[in-house]
Nucleic acid binder design. Sequence first.
DNA 1: ATTGGTTCCTGCTGGC
DNA 2: TGCCAGCAGGAACCAA
Length: 282
Amino acid sequence: MPELPEVETTLRGLIPALVGDTVSNVDIRTSGLRFPFPHDLSSKIKNRRVTSINRRAKYLLISLEGDLVLLSHLGMSGRMRVFTKGDKIPPIDKHDHVIFRTLRGTEVRFNDSRRFGALDLVSVKKLETHAFICNLGPEPLSESFNGAMLAARLFEKKTNIKTALLDQRTIAGLGNIYACEALYHANLSPRRGAYTIQGKRAERLASSIQRVLRAAIKAGGASLRDFRQSDGGLGYFQHQFAVYGRENELCPRCNVANHPQGCIKRIVQNGRSTFHCSQWQR
DNA sequence: ATTGGTTCCTGCTGGC
DNA sequence: TGCCAGCAGGAACCAA
């Protein structure tokens, strides 16, 4: 499930493949996914050069010549698969919804089996006010992100900390996996009221968030069912999960302490599974 | 205004 | 072994 590290991994695969090259052809095979695609998507981006590619939260921002930005969200199961000239190109899959081709012979396929992904076009000057972008909270890997900033944002919240971390307006880029993992590494109970995360606890949580995201990016993201890097390779961070998906197992620290039985519990918060260690997270 | 529940979609899993 | 109900999850939407 693409969260910030998976989108960052995708970004790092797209940059060398696309930046500096020019879109020559856009094959749109579906009228839309979560939302209808812009009706003029193909004509708007054809013959434009890709000037840069960036990430904001879980969105890819593909900047094109002429102050145009192609926004993409990978949803639950979206992938951007890159084939460069000379690669063996597989047959088109039924979930290859948009295929971008370039002058240099690169092909990028936006594949999304669960169809929760999105694509939109916006001018650079309207980017910050675009509906996808305008309510996003701070980037956890930015220079300015720290415990004090996080504490201030959590202080207003009446919900539990796990739910607050999933809300992209609080902090942008975390999904279910990294919210669970960050709370574990910060020794904080997912049930705790968000407003109680202040001072030292907020420092701990902020640094845990950064640490887990950086480690996941380094591992090329996590591949559970769906995620693949843009070259088709797997991410490896799932092997470093401390709690996610490990109900009734021992967390790393309980394992060291040789506890007799599984410490990792699964609870449901707002309809989402939360995995946490009943021994260490308070 | 904020929050929690529901919904979209498809593929995989687990229980019978 | 095979089938199918149920689950998974991001975020928009809606209702309270």
